[in-house]
Each structure stands twice: as structure tokens, then as C-alpha cells.
Amino acid sequence: MNWNITAGRPVYVQLIEQLELAIVTGEYPPGSRIPAVRELAAEAGVNPNTMQRALQDLESRGLLQSQRTSGRIVSANQDTLHTLRVQRAEVYVADFLRQMHKLGYTQEETLELLQKATFPTVSNTKEES
């Protein structure tokens, strides 16, 4: 998957966010096995201890489940996935509105622009990883 760790915020927080996103978008679908800690860490270019910490967080929230001998699988159910998706959408919307506000747009003007905008129609555009 595509990792993007930026400055300024704790690395493990960003890892959690990006792992969550991969689960929500179905890159790691429910029931699938995720790569081993060292492999994920090498892929993201981060310290294995940090990756471990992020995975443990997801585990404690029931999104991942440790299999005694064979790594971790995605254990999130549809309800949790739905909640996560909504939460993520709210973050994006809030972020978007903040930027529009910065540009000097009012709520009405923003909504008007949104009405005119076209939503991407092809929904299954698979991103290359």
C-alpha cells in the first residue's frame, strides 16, 4: 500500500490512520491476512516497534485480530467499517469546509459550487499500489 508519513505528527498516529483507511477502502478486506509487522514496517520505511504499536491499537479496537501463529487478520465487521467510513468522511468534509472558509467562501456559496460539481462516476477506479 501507499504510505505517506509527514512531519509534525506522531508517526504511529499516521500509521493507524492509513491502516484504517486501507481496511475501510477494502484494500485489506474483512477476513484477509495483513502482512507481518517487519514487512509492513519495511514497506512504510518506519521502525518495526512503531508499526507494532499501531497494529496493537487497531487490535485493541477490534479491527484486527491476532492469530496465534499466523499473523493478523482483519476482523472488523460491517458495522465498524460503516462507522469508520462515516468518521473519515466527516473529517474530509470538515477539512474541505475549513479550506473553503479560508478562501473566503460562505456556506451558501460553497453548497452552490458543490451542486454544480460532478461526482466521479467510475466508482471502481483501482489505485495502483
Binding site: A7, G8, R9, P10, V11, Y12, V13, N47, T50
Partner: peptide
């Protein structure tokens, strides 16, 4: 720890 420092200072170690 790097993450604690980033959290506490709100910036990267480099900054």
C-alpha cells in the same frame, strides 16, 4: 521517543 517528541512539540525532530 520520536513519537513522544513529535506529539509534545507538535513538530518533527528535524524542525
Amino acid at each position: 521517543s520520536v513519537d513522544h517528541l513529535r506529539q509534545e512539540k507538535g513538530m518533527s525532530v528535524d524542525e
